[in-house]
Amino acid sequence: MKQQLIQLEINNQLYEIPVTPRDLLVDVIRKKVGITGTKKGCGEGDCGACTVLMDGAPVLSCLTLAITCQGRKIITIEGLADEQGALHPIQQSFLDHGAVQCGFCTPGMILTTKALLDKNPHPDQTSIKRGIAGNICRCTGYKKIVEAIGAAADRIATREVK
């Protein structure tokens, strides 16, 4: 199948990548770009592990054709820490609250959280739960994740006040 070049901005870096129409975004990110924080838990849109942010919206990269992403801005989990390597407050909060166990859901969970807090900086518990309901975690029982998200929202709010 003929390959065609597409431009993707991933984590603020521009990539020109040859793809065929059938290539899925998750595979392009993992195999062609070579950053593997984006996980494949089900390949069917049911677990949320492959979530990336596309122009700020959380999307399932396992159900997204890469060719449809021409010119889009994508943020993966690798793009969340700042340039100096300091953790994003959501990442720090997940760490501090014990919201990480096996870590396989973590990238998708953190990115979905990022999209949630961008839209709703002060979510109540129900909004948090609704926001991440499409991200399956089998280890933590979710409690610490919900707590971590609440604390991250507070942390971001405080940081922005400063």
Binding site: T36, E78, P107
Partner: peptide, 23 residues
């Protein structure tokens, strides 16, 4: 003591390498 996991930072950054991530 409740301490953060030693593999935690790599996991929240998406840097932890699982078998399917290896090349």
């Amino acid at each position: 003591r409740s301490v953060t996991r030693i593999d935690g930072p790599a996991k929240v950054k998406g840097e932890a390498i699982y078998t399917d991530d290896m090349v």
